[in-house]
Structure formats: C-alpha cells, structure tokens
Design a protein around this nucleic acid. Sequence first.
DNA 1: AATAAATAGATGTATATACATGTAATATAT
DNA 2: ATATATTACATGTATATACATCTATTTATT
Lengths: 151, 151
Amino acid sequence: MKLEQALQTSRFRNETHKASLNILYTSWWLKTTMSRELKSYGLTHEQYNVMRILKGKSPEMMCVKDIAGRMIEKNSNVPRIIDRLVEKKLVKRQTDSNDKRHTVVQLTPLGLRLLEKSTKGIESLMENLLVVTEKEATSLNTLLEKIRQKE
Amino acid sequence: MKLEQALQTSRFRNETHKASLNILYTSWWLKTTMSRELKSYGLTHEQYNVMRILKGKSPEMMCVKDIAGRMIEKNSNVPRIIDRLVEKKLVKRQTDSNDKRHTVVQLTPLGLRLLEKSTKGIESLMENLLVVTEKEATSLNTLLEKIRQKE
DNA sequence: AATAAATAGATGTATATACATGTAATATAT
DNA sequence: ATATATTACATGTATATACATCTATTTATT
C-alpha cells in the first residue's frame, strides 16, 4: 500500500519527510503483524524480544542490563517485562551470587519450547510477508543506517 | 550507528531479517528523537500528530474517525489523545449537530500557535538530523513500499 | 412505525513506553 | 576504614497501544 493511501494524505514537504513517515508507518505495520501472530502463543512483541535475546546467550544467564542493551526499543522497562514472563513460568529469575545488584534471568524449558514454536510461526510469516531480494534488503539496510548517521 | 552496535548482536538470519529489525530500530530512534524535541513544547508525539492532522483540514472541523484514519499508528486511541489536548485547551471538541454520533474537533488559536512553533522546531531538527539526498529518500520510500506490498 | 443492524465514539483493562525516583549492593576516594 | 559515588534494579506515574465492550445515534429492514 502506498503511504498516501495508508495515511490518507499527500502532504509531504519532500522525499525525506515522506521517508520519515514511511519508516514510522512501516514499523507500526510490521510490529502489528508480528504481534497478531505472537498473540496466538500468548506473547507480546516485547516478551518475545526478551526471550529471543535470552536464547542467544543460553544456556548462560543474562542480567537485566545486558538484556536491556539488546532491546530494539531502548526505553523498554525490562524488569517489568520479565515480571510477566516469570508469572507465565517462561523464564527463571534470581539474584546473582557474585554481585547481588544483578538479577540474572534464564529461559525455562517451557519458555524454550514456546520460543521455538513461536519463532517457527514468526519466521514463516515473515518469509511469506516480506518479499524483497537480498540485494534490495541490503540496500534498505544501507539507507536506514545512512539516515541514522547523526545518531 | 550500525545496527549490530545498536542491538549488540550480529545474529541476523539474512538481510531481510536484518532489514525488519533495522526498520523497527530506526523508527524507535526517530520517534524518540522527535519526542524529546516535542517535550519542550509539552507535547507527545501522538498529540502532535493529531494536531498536524487537524491543521491539514483547518479551519474545517474533523471527526474522530477521520483523524484516526490519518494516524500513523492505526490503533491509536484518538478520543483519549483528544482528551489531553482539550485539557490543555489546544483543541475544541463538540458534538456534530448533523450527526450526533460524530464528535468534531478543531484547533484553538492557542493550539494553532503551539503547533506552528513546535513544527518549526521539529522541521529544523529533522533537517539537521536526516542527511540523505532526495534521490536516496526516494529510493528508501520505494523499498519500504515494496516491503509492505502484501499489506 | 417498530425492530434490527450498523456506525461513532466513549470507556475499561492489560501491557508497554518514557522517565523520575527510591533502594540495596558494590566500587572508589580520602 | 569510613564516607561518597556509582551501579543495577525495582517501583511509581502519566501517557500510549491494543483490543474488548458499552452506549447513543442513525440507517436499513420488514
């Protein structure tokens, strides 16, 4: 869908302005589509993101700060997301014995199984949804990093 | 900043997977940067978005549904965002006399002045921040619309 | 005209974001 | 060694998202 149609407007100052709205809209669309799929596993996008991060280091435990540093949205309130995962017994949380300021977190076997199932769902969804060539994706990555150059 | 650095990982299945994370991250970055600027005017990104939409049609009044259809995030709870704008006397809200189901909304002179000031701030911020050529921006727009082709 | 269906939006709930503040544990400075 | 600063995290608050449900009004059906 063209952005003009999605936002029901064609008032863009220039292509760069349009691109910024296009990024925000595409991100919302992606997140929404993924969230709908994740809902069938009882997960939110953020809970899934935390679990993916934990999987990346497993079977090592990770502290809250390290998880937060890998989150897409850097202001995520990771302790609270972990609260919900603990309630659902998808992760285990304990105080680090070496440094009691640290809270370390780990996927439970239940969490790992759910992550694997949901990841399959998400990956097949994305494969069908996002039909661009590797070359186009590379070009997109380059342009997005260019737009963030003053980060 | 490279995505690898932002997310502290280099585990991407392929360029398309990386692109999806890149879109989500760039969107978060953009939104955060804009929100910081908008905060100096006492506005959230969503409140600003509603006000921009109202300006686009002013001096006509707009109903809640029409505003919602133009929002970037389609699940925005527009009545509640308007609540906050009404509290701050930035918009005026009333029932449509022709169809009492409709609530029509309009910027107040105060709202219009604040919008003009904040828009100047946002535009100069973006101009300095997003340094890509028109050509690159066009190419980015094309790729984002391609990635959403199955929308 | 009376009834049913559709529409607009208000409102409720769980979760998340954004950010401020509080608290305990550890590291650093004197 | 004691005081101070820093770090890691928990927790509180306002606002937003995502979605369900309720209510008032209008439109369509019979």
